[in-house]
Structure formats: C-alpha cells, structure tokens
Design a protein around this nucleic acid. Structure first.
Lengths: 167, 167
DNA sequence: TGCGATTTAATCGGATACGATATATATAAG
DNA sequence: CTTATATATATCGTATCCGATTAAATCGCA
C-alpha cells in the first residue's frame, strides 16, 4: 500500500494539473456523474410511474420478473444487484397490490418463488408507449454504445470488489 | 414523435426485434445500467469511506464544499442536485462531527452559510491516496469520454424535465 | 441417524431521496 | 406602516439501500 502524498481522488483520471486541489472538483468525478444521472433518471420516470402508482424500484423489479416466472428472491436479487433485505419489503408491497404472487417452494421451503400476475404483466404494457424518455436522453445513435459502456463499467467495478486484490 | 402502439419501454433504443417482450429486458434499459452502476460505485467506495466514518453522500457533500467557502444550502443543492430536505440532515451531521460549520447569513437570516473546517479539509486529503478505483473502472483511456458522456446524459434528462413540452 | 455448518428470507436500525408542509425572514403593495 | 407574497431552510412521512442479525430449512459427514 503506497503511502502516497498526492492524495489523489479515487475516482478521477490522471490529473491534468499537478494533482493539486484543482482536479478535485465534483465535475471530474465519474462516480458523481453516475450518481447524479441516476437521480435525473428517477425524476424523469417519476411522472410516468406516479400515474401507475409505482416507484422506480418497484417498476424495475416488475421488469425483471417479466423475464421469467417462479424466480426466487435470490435470483431476482442477482439480476437487480439487490438482496433480500431490500427486496422483501418491495415484493411484499407488490404482492399486496396484486401485481405478483409469493409462496414458499415446496421442494425447498427456504426459498420463495415470485411470479407476476396477469395484472402485473398488463401494468408493464402501460409504461410510456411513446418512448419519450429515449428522446430525453439526447443520445441519438450513441444510445446503445453508452448503455453498453456503462454496463461494462458496472461489471468492472463489481468484479474488482469480488477480487481480493490484483497486484 | 412516433405514436407507437407497441408499448415500448421508455428507456430503450429502437427495438431490434419486432418490439415484443423480447426487447423489454432489464439489460436493455439505460436507466438500469445507470442505476446499477451507481449501486456498484457506492459499494466500491464503502470500504474506503467506512475507514473515515463517512457515507458516500457525506463525502460528495464535502467535496462540493471544498470548491468554495460560505456556500448556501441552495448553492450546494444546485451542485449536488439535491434540496434542503435531503441536505439539511446531512449537513447537521457533518457539523456535529466537526467537519463543517453552519450559520445564518447576517445579511439574510433565511440563508445558511456552510463552510469546511480545517478538519473537514484534511479529511478529504485522506481519501484513497492510491487511486485504486480508477483502475477498478477498467475504462483506461476512455475514462474522460465516459465521464463526459454520462454528464451530458444527465443534463439532457434534466433539461427535458425543465421544458414543459417539445412538440 | 444425528447434529453442526450452510443457505435463504426476513427483520431491524441507520442513512439517504423526495413530495408535502411548516416556519422564519425578506420583499412588495397599498 | 401593515399586510400579502415570495424565498430559504427545516420538518415529516414514505420508500429505498445496506450491514448485521435472526429464524427456518437443508446439507454434510462422521
């Protein structure tokens, strides 16, 4: 572990300036770009999802559930990068509103199998038929590239955490 | 503005397949890429910030404060894309730990001026001297481009929300 | 077979986000 | 000068995230 005296921020590329405070601006942090973009997406979705009585996380969970029936909480968590402590309350709420069903797997009572109801499946069809948000991104033809690049960034970050250390 | 009847997801590029359920997968959502990357960044920062007793948002707030003294809560909120309902509790906590000062502006008692203490400024110098997270992004030379692209995406989304409608 | 170790959800507490509201101060109108 | 309006924070309730713990079921292996 190098006892560097440059105290560079963890999230920035090689400093253009001599690594002083100049480069330590919020606008140079990739993590902040992602953080604030996530906030912006949440706000963009809000009016659309409010009309359906869904939160953003609930919507994402329904989309993940639409991909496959009878998923366990763990399987869903792997897709969403969340764990049962976050998912359980959300799934219970979506169950209470009738968009999904939850029941213990008879073959292994530890697991809970979750499936969309027809109501839940129909709800997803109501989300933004016009696709206004695509235009709102302003990315045009770059859309797929950005999507792929951000996904790669995510996977890189998670892989780095999984590895104990890479010399 | 295409009045599609395909019930396309709001967040996806033109569907490769006939816009059926095939394209409605989580992995095709740009918003989910950003959402999950934000989670990944939070987890990557956790061990670093835990050692300093800071949360991610607290750290971001300190960085923003390091750019300028005597900022009001509103000014800080503009930089962080947050409002007083979120910032006030965070600033109070950072004040209680001695990393910043808060006091009403004598010239306008409605405003609260916030400044880093020397302890707060020193704390920022301790963050990840090695810059391990830069490597963890795995972006290499693309780092600045990705940073800029994501920032542009954020600004586009926010601008689209600010506009009432674009015919 | 029996029992400790592992696995899966769920629960609990702390820390954000954010809409809605409240409070205090400042400004404007008359 | 006095009230109505506007502005800047703060408070409150709801919904995530997440670490730590708990509870129940299953598995491993002597």
């Amino acid at each position: 572990m190098p006892t560097s005296k440059s105290a560079k921020a963890p999230d920035m590329p090689a400093p253009a300036s001599p690594a002083g405070k100049e480069g330590r601006k919020l606008s140079n942090f990739l993590c902040f770009a992602v953080y604030s973009t996530n906030l912006a997406f949440g706000r963009a979705y809000k009016p659309i999802l409010d009309a359906l009585g869904l939160t953003y996380t609930q919507y994402i969970a329904l989309v993940a559930l639409s991909e496959e029936d009878d998923q366990t909480v763990s399987m869903l968590g792997e897709k969403l990068f969340l764990e049962s402590n976050t998912l359980t309350p959300i799934l219970k709420k979506l169950e209470s509103t009738g968009y999904l069903t939850r029941h213990r797997d008879p073959a292994d009572e530890r697991q809970v199998r979750v499936s969309l109801t027809p109501a839940g499946r129909n709800l997803l069809l109501d989300v933004d038929p016009g696709g206004t948000l695509i235009a709102a991104t302003g990315l045009g033809d770059d859309f797929p590239v950005v999507q792929q690049t951000v996904t790669r960034l995510r996977d890189n970050l998670l892989r780095a955490q999984a590895e104990p250390e890479k010399s």
